[in-house]
Simulated scan of single mutants.
Amino acid sequence: METTLKNKKILITAGPTREYIDPVRFISNESSGKMGYAIAEALHNLGANVILVSGPVSIASTFPNHKTIKVMTGNEMYLECQKHFDSVDIAIFCAAVADYKPKTSSEIKIKKIENEVVLELQKNVDIAFEFGKLKTVNQISVGFALETNNVLENSIGKLKKKNFDLVVMNSPNLNEGFGFDTNKISIIHSDLSTHNFPLKNKKEVALDIISSIKINLRSKQKIGEVEIKRIA
């Protein structure tokens, strides 16, 4: 029997965050949001009930605007996700949330006075980690690992630390990842099995990721059926 994602409640984060130094300056990254939006569009077309929490992006999307929650900072994204954590079947953490934010943020534009300034940073909220502590056995959590070195080792560490069911791995190479329409990924599952994919359009990559989620969902369903039989 084919596994369906129709009517499954799915939370997706996408895009970058902006951590403001003052009203016109911020810390951010190169994430375009294209991968997260491609996944959201594909799942919506499959009949899933998708909630998309998006950082600031400039892309055209077919995903319904009324199902998109727009935020700026990592903390805003965390607070919006927090509202849905308990009720989702699947969470896909595709957003590139800034790891650090300014310790203080000025309400007015900081004037250029000195040749050098010191900017104090503090660790930002790790949304996927916080969700990992709350995740139940019936929920599926998907993470992303963009690494420049020790890709597999670092991805396995992230998989375990954040209680992911699978991690999508990639590197910021030419024509891949941030800002591009294509991506070359590998997917590592909780049993540490790995599936490598060739360079593809992000819409195709989204379908590969969804197929891996379905495999994981089938495994959980089988385990649940075995447990029911044992109880019976």
Results as ranks from 00 to 15, higher is better:
72 M>Y: 13
75 N>P: 00
76 E>Q: 15
79 L>G: 00
81 C>P: 04
82 Q>C: 01
84 H>F: 15
84 H>S: 04
85 F>T: 04
85 F>V: 01
86 D>M: 05
86 D>S: 09
87 S>H: 02
88 V>E: 01
90 I>M: 00
93 F>M: 13
93 F>E: 02
95 A>M: 05
95 A>R: 05
97 V>G: 06
98 A>W: 14
98 A>F: 14
99 D>Q: 09
100 Y>P: 06
100 Y>D: 03
103 K>H: 13
104 T>C: 03
104 T>W: 04
105 S>K: 15
106 S>K: 10
107 E>H: 09
108 I>E: 06
109 K>S: 07
109 K>I: 10
110 I>K: 10
110 I>E: 11
111 K>E: 12
112 K>D: 09
113 I>L: 10
114 E>F: 08
114 E>N: 13
116 E>C: 03
116 E>M: 07
117 V>F: 14
118 V>Q: 12
118 V>K: 14
118 V>L: 12
118 V>S: 11
119 L>Y: 07
119 L>H: 02
122 Q>W: 00
124 N>K: 14
126 D>K: 15
126 D>A: 04
126 D>Y: 05
129 F>M: 12
129 F>K: 15
130 E>N: 11
130 E>S: 05
131 F>C: 02
133 K>A: 11
134 L>S: 04
134 L>R: 15
136 T>D: 01
136 T>R: 13
137 V>M: 07
139 Q>N: 10
139 Q>P: 10
140 I>C: 10
140 I>Q: 06
140 I>T: 15
140 I>E: 02
142 V>F: 05
142 V>C: 05
147 E>C: 02
148 T>F: 04
148 T>C: 00
148 T>P: 01
149 N>S: 14
149 N>T: 13
150 N>I: 01
151 V>R: 03
151 V>A: 06
151 V>P: 00
152 L>K: 12
155 S>Q: 08
155 S>C: 04
155 S>L: 06
156 I>G: 01
156 I>C: 03
156 I>Y: 08
159 L>H: 02
159 L>K: 01
160 K>A: 02
160 K>Y: 02
161 K>H: 11
163 N>Q: 12
163 N>S: 09
163 N>D: 08
164 F>D: 01
164 F>H: 07
165 D>F: 01
165 D>R: 03
166 L>T: 03
167 V>K: 05
169 M>Q: 01
174 L>P: 00
175 N>Y: 09
175 N>H: 06
